[in-house]
Amino acid sequence: MLKIKDLHANVEGKEILRGINLEVNAGEVHAIMGPNGSGKSTLASVIAGNETYEVTAGDIFLNGENIEDLSPEERAHNGVFLSFQYPVEIPGVSVTNFMKTAINESRKAKGLEDMPAKDMLKLIRDKSELLEIDRKFLSRSLNEGFSGGEKKRNEIFQMAMLEPKLAILDETDSGLDIDALRIVANGVNKLKSKDNAVVVITHYQRLLEYIVPDFVHVLYNGKIVKSGTKELAMELEEKGYDWIKQEAAV
């Protein structure tokens, strides 16, 4: 599904990613962990097509196609979804209208008609139930005045609505209390299938107790320095990141 080869990326002339190699297959869950400033969020943004970052070398393939020249919206139309660490507030545009626009723009790109209003309402109802979202919440302005937990839940609601092939969850667990964490994780698990893949970016092992990864990668200094299975996450929780840094320095 996703294949990243020797990816290098800069922001404002500073190299953040220094040769990332990663392969994610359909049906898999990957976790990317690492200390602050190691490049985790940059990797997520670069995959989703954020133009703030300049890709200086390497390739990203999605289902065999090089996506280098695709805009963020084209990547979304091809099934990439990024759950933001800091979702943006859009006053005056309700969650419902925002999702209608997003879904119909994707359909338009695929040459499809707008989704009939009846189907849209049903989809919204089903997916909001999945994430235990109150109906009133959907008529509020997107992310405006939302608590941290509400914003994250709303991100996963959007993911549920858009049904991406590749979902990247950037620090989705930050700012969540234990109940919200369970709801969010439960939502992600229900959306998981053999046809899609999830990349979980996190600092802590906590979320991985709920969304169990098939593979765990440690990102340090812009490179994946260690890969393993879920046991690696537990080891990191226990021992911290220092031993990784030392190993990387050797």
């Binding site: 097509g49 919206e73 139309h77 979804f81 943006v88 626009t101 997003a102 879904i103």
Partner: peptide, 16 residues
């Protein structure tokens, strides 16, 4: 720009 990227990442074209 970050807000623009957020909307685009949801499939909404740049102009919209």
């Amino acid at each position: 720009e970050e807000a623009l990227f957020y909307l685009q990442s949801r499939g909404i074209p740049k102009k919209e």
